[in-house]
Computed example of a mutant assay.
Amino acid sequence: MLLLHIGASHLNTEESQTSNLPIASWKYLTPPTRVLCVFLAVFAIALTPNGHWWTWLFYGIWLSAIVPLSGVKLLKLLQRLAIESSFIGVVLLGTLFQKSGEVVWAWGWLQITTQGLTILGSVALKAFLSLLMLNILTMTTSVPMLLHALRVLRVPSLLVAILASMHRYLSVLIEEFNAMRRAAASRNFASHKLWRGNAQQRAWQRQVIGNMIGVMFVRTYDRGERIYQAMMSRGLKEVPPIMEVQPAGLQDLLAVIGTVAIGLLGQLIYVMRSF
Rank of each mutant, 00 (worst) to 15 (best):
S9T: 10
H10N: 13
S16W: 10
N20H: 15
L21G: 13
L21Q: 14
S25E: 07
K27S: 12
L29F: 14
P32A: 05
F39D: 11
L40P: 07
L40E: 03
F43W: 12
G51Y: 02
T55R: 05
F58A: 14
Y59C: 02
Y59M: 07
W62E: 00
S70H: 01
G71V: 00
V72I: 05
K73Q: 15
L78E: 09
Q79S: 14
Q79A: 10
A82I: 10
F87A: 04
I88G: 01
G89S: 08
G89F: 15
V90R: 04
V90Y: 08
V91F: 12
G94A: 06
T95K: 03
T95L: 06
F97R: 01
Q98W: 00
Q98T: 08
S100L: 04
G101E: 10
W105A: 05
A106W: 01
A106L: 00
L110K: 03
T114R: 01
T114Y: 06
I119W: 06
S122L: 06
S122E: 07
S122C: 04
L125C: 11
L134G: 06
L134M: 13
N135S: 06
I136T: 01
T138H: 15
T140W: 03
S142K: 09
V143F: 08
L147T: 03
R151F: 06
S157P: 11
L159D: 00
I162Y: 08
A164L: 02
R168G: 05
L170G: 07
S171L: 08
V172A: 02
N178V: 09
N178Y: 05
R182E: 12
S186Y: 09
A190T: 03
K193A: 09
N198I: 02
Q200Y: 13
R202Y: 08
A203Q: 09
W204C: 03
W204Q: 13
Q205R: 04
Q207L: 14
M212E: 15
G214E: 11
T220L: 07
Y221T: 13
D222K: 13
Y228A: 15
M232W: 12
G235Y: 14
P241W: 11
E244L: 12
V245G: 02
Q246Y: 00
Q251F: 13
D252N: 00
G258W: 15
V260P: 04
G263F: 07
Q267S: 03
I269S: 01
V271C: 02
